[in-house]
């Protein structure tokens, strides 16, 4: 079964390809079926002309990355797309057991209180300490990466409950920096 799950701007869609090999293709998106015609074979990043139920669209895949979201331009509008192939091979069953970022629906309370690094880098300046009160937008620390300094600001008001890093420390993307409660 050629069934696929595609996440477009964080909204999930089930896509099924029917009659593959014959043109026009029939494509099922969620519960609707469309007739799809390709004007040219699809190669990397080449704009593709496509007819959906007789209406023309230009589609361009800007970036492909197996795991990370990538970007597709439809008629000059950009979409962030994540792709999951749905085939029940042994390895993939294993994958579905492990919770991944994609399948986690709600962040836990602990996660919501944690400010994480949005890029890898070095903590060059730490502006808060345990017990400090912070307002939304207050600078918590400054991360340096590739000669560029970026401020990490408080996403919410509260009291600093824990500082996970120190000045000079290297952090990875997504690593917790400060916990605000």
């Amino acid at each position: 079964m050629r069934e696929h799950r595609v996440r477009v701007n964080n909204k999930e869609h089930e896509v099924r390809l029917l009659d593959m090999g014959k043109t026009p293709y029939r494509v099922e998106v969620d519960d609707k079926t469309y007739k799809v015609d390709f004007s040219n074979e699809i190669t990397d990043s080449t704009p593709v002309l496509i007819k959906v139920n007789g209406k023309r669209h230009t589609v361009e895949i800007n970036k492909f990355n197996k795991d990370a979201p990538f970007h597709i331009k439809v008629n000059d509008r950009l979409f962030k797309v994540q792709y999951e192939r749905r085939e029940r091979t042994p390895s993939q069953i294993m994958e579905t057991i492990q919770p991944t970022l994609k399948t986690q629906p709600v962040k836990s309370i602990a996660e919501r209180n944690t400010v994480t690094a949005f890029m890898p880098g070095r903590v060059v300046l730490l502006k808060v300490k345990l017990g400090d009160s912070v307002k939304v937008g207050d600078t918590l620390c400054v991360l340096e990466s590739m000669k560029m300094e970026n401020e990490i600001t408080a996403p919410k008001a509260g009291v600093v409950q824990e500082v996970k890093v120190s000045e000079g420390l290297m952090v990875n993307k997504g690593e917790p920096l400060v916990i605000i409660k």
Binding site: V8, V27, V29, V52, I72
Partner: peptide
């Protein structure tokens, strides 16, 4: 959703 269909189909 036609756009979604378009891009999904292309993608797939």
């Amino acid at each position: 959703e036609e756009e979604v269909a378009a891009l999904s189909a292309v993608l797939v």
